[in-house]
Simulated scan of single mutants.
Amino acid sequence: MLAVTCTSQSATDPLSGLEVGERPEPVAPDGWTTVRLRTAALNHHDVWSLRGVGLPADRLPMVLGCDGAGIDDEGREVVVHAVVASPDWAGDETLDPRRSLLSEVHDGTLAEVVTVPRRNVVAKPAGLSWEHAACLPTAWLTAYRMLFTNAGVQPGGTVLVQGAAGGVATALVQLGAAAGLRMWVTSRDEARGEQAVALGADRAFEAGARMPERVDAVMETVGAATWSHSVNSLRPGGTIVISGATSGDAPAKAELTKIYFKQLRVVGSTMGTRTELERLTRFVVDAGVEPLVDSVLPLTRAREGFERMVAGTVSGKVVFTV
């Protein structure tokens, strides 16, 4: 089968270990299903794997990819859930200390075929296109959990998204606007801020700008560079939901005094559950939300998508057709 594989790793030249070529087709063990993919999507997680972060070298070669949608071995149209829990785990799989994502322990979705536990597929709604289905399992599921499970914001509330262009940021804007939240974004790039407004954001601000009023919640994926701004932008009793730290995890100031004096909540958020993925797929169809797609490429041209992501020129999701 055709697959996109990490064969070696380099922190400075991640694409040197990227191989697009033939791999043996996987065989599903008991309790697993085979999904013949129609579409798959790219995530920063895939680039980090090529850099040697989160994927030990002794597991190479590894087929990359967390996002995918296709036909399972029962002929059903399905979306793949990327969080693989321990076989005996019950409850919220994101809390399983032994959980993994596809392409960390088990081969991922950037291939013609992937095998996953049977509980790791959800039905694809008929109104959801293959391209949009592939966008949902990682960035969009992360955004869904941040907003609707962990932020505690009600329709009419104001949410600040730090950053405007990445997959999680654009998903937050689109989901929040569709749910009746007033979404604000910050961006160092005026054009990307304007794009966020076109997607449904109420306003876009320069990075670090003083907000016209305090917000109910901040969606934080940037980390050290925006941490103080996030804390200072919150109303008393507000919530920061953090799911990443792309600029580093050691801010110059922890802002502990402001956090306890203003009684702020800081909530960690990682991916989402299978149940949340089911709800997400229904919500985007019922609300008429169309995930922002940066580009659609055949899997044979996967390297082009990786090059765009490494260069930092991606807005929304890069989708591969299989």
Rank of each mutant, 00 (worst) to 15 (best):
L2W: 00
T5Q: 14
T12D: 14
S16Y: 07
V20K: 02
T34C: 07
A41S: 12
H44P: 07
R51I: 01
G52Q: 00
P61C: 09
V63Q: 08
G70R: 00
G70V: 07
V78C: 15
A90S: 15
R99Y: 05
S100Q: 13
D107R: 06
A111S: 11
N120H: 00
V122P: 02
K124M: 05
A133E: 02
T138V: 15
A143P: 09
Y144I: 04
R145N: 00
A151V: 02
G152A: 07
T158L: 00
L160E: 07
V161C: 11
R182A: 14
T186W: 03
G193R: 13
Q195A: 13
R203T: 08
R210P: 09
E213Y: 09
M219V: 05
L234Y: 06
P236Q: 11
G237W: 09
G238F: 05
T239I: 12
V241L: 13
G244M: 13
S247A: 14
D249R: 14
A250T: 15
K253Y: 09
A254F: 14
A254L: 15
G268P: 04
R274E: 12
R282W: 12
F283K: 01
G288T: 02
P291T: 06
V293F: 00
S295Q: 15
L297F: 14
T313Q: 08
